[in-house]
């Protein structure tokens, strides 16, 4: 109980600090890209090795002073100044670095989430940068006057929007004596689809329809006329229709293998919500694989029927954003 009170007080203190000194706290609000690092948000502290090294320097200094050995003192002063001035180089490693784009690929919950962060630098190359997100740490260099792409693999345990959270960009360049770091909190979230049910039953097709589908075979029927694209084969051009209009038109055929499948949330009895969403996601996946048109019926909306990457994404997105997922 006491600990809880202390924790509350601590978080309240942090909130207060954030309100009063936004630059000093790392509890910064998410900000829109591009994020450019400058002196207002770069912090420096000596590393543990830096502390040890300064201790050694102090011993050397004392020894040189004690034995009245001027050459030793001169070299100690030079080494000390060199190591101290490395703090500026360390600062320059992060200064004016820009995070200008983040790309994520949607994934299913439980699968690794791939994130690509695009950094941009000025004329100087940046060495030995270290990016940490959650427990994932990755080291990379950036070439001069160029862009660098850093690929991260994060875990995505829950469906819904997965916020990237705070990224810690740090470096101990050039000598490992000082660590400079900065917190990046890009306003970016990745969509995480529901988990795919591993052992899902097959698509809910009527047996009769399935037979009909095989009987029809690959029968094609004309779906629509559209404008000619340079890669279309000549035999698909609808010459008569083209003559009526001024442009070349192409006959587009659609392969139909049967009636639409309806994937109905409400029809899945005896399962909790997450299990239902999991199964529906798997069915979407199966329907796409079998090239069967499908419609998705959810308590709050109905999608389709349709087929193709866009439809699939729309369905999975609707599934992912069902209430009860990640905020």
């Amino acid at each position: 109980m006491n600990r809880l009170a202390a924790a509350t007080r601590w978080s309240r203190l942090l909130e207060f600090a954030e309100r009063r000194l936004p630059a000093l706290t790392r509890l910064k609000r998410a900000e829109s890209l591009p994020i450019r690092l400058d002196r207002h948000r770069i912090y420096v502290l000596p590393t543990r090795f830096g502390a040890l090294f300064s201790l050694v320097l102090a011993v050397m200094l004392l020894g040189a002073l004690n034995y009245n050995n001027n050459p030793a003192l001169l070299l100690t002063c030079l080494l000390g100044a060199a190591s101290y001035q490395s703090v500026f180089q360390a600062f320059r490693t992060l200064n004016r670095l820009e995070l200008h784009a983040i790309r994520t690929e949607p994934c299913h919950a439980g699968e690794p989430l791939r994130v690509a962060l695009h950094f941009r630098t000025d004329a100087r190359p940046r060495r030995s940068l270290c990016l940490r997100v959650d427990a994932v740490e990755i080291r990379f260099d950036l070439p001069a006057a160029g862009e660098g792409c850093v690929h991260l693999t994060l875990d995505a345990p829950q469906r819904g929007w997965r916020r990237l959270g705070r990224l810690r960009l740090s470096s101990t360049y050039p000598f490992g004596l000082f660590e400079v770091w900065s917190w990046l909190h890009p306003d970016v979230a990745a969509l995480v689809y529901p988990r795919l049910e591993p052992q899902a039953p097959p698509l809910p097709l009527d047996p009769a329809e399935a037979q009909w589908q095989t009987a029809r075979g690959s029968g094609d029927e004309l779906a629509v006329l559209r404008e000619y694209r340079p890669t279309d084969p000549l035999r698909t051009i609808a010459w008569k229709a083209s003559a009526r209009h001024d442009t070349l038109l192409v006959k587009e055929f659609e392969r139909r293998r049967g009636r639409d499948v309806v994937l109905d949330f409400g029809a899945l009895h005896g399962l909790d919500r997450e299990a239902r969403l999991s199964r529906l996601a798997r069915w979407v996946f199966l329907a796409e694989a079998a090239q069967v048109r499908y419609a998705l019926v959810l308590p709050d909306q109905r999608l389709g029927p349709g087929l193709g990457a866009e439809h699939r994404h729309a369905c999975l997105r609707a599934l992912a954003l069902q209430p009860g997922g990640a905020p």
Binding site: L61, L65, N66, N68, N70, L73, L74, C77, L78, L79, G80, A81, A82, Y84, Q85, S86, Q89, P174, F175
Partner: peptide
């Protein structure tokens, strides 16, 4: 790094009070 440290190093060497 050593070259850049020359000004600061020399100042420290000259003015650091001797024991």
């Amino acid at each position: 790094a050593l070259f850049a440290a020359v000004p600061l190093g020399l100042i420290a060497f000259v003015f650091l009070p001797r024991l």
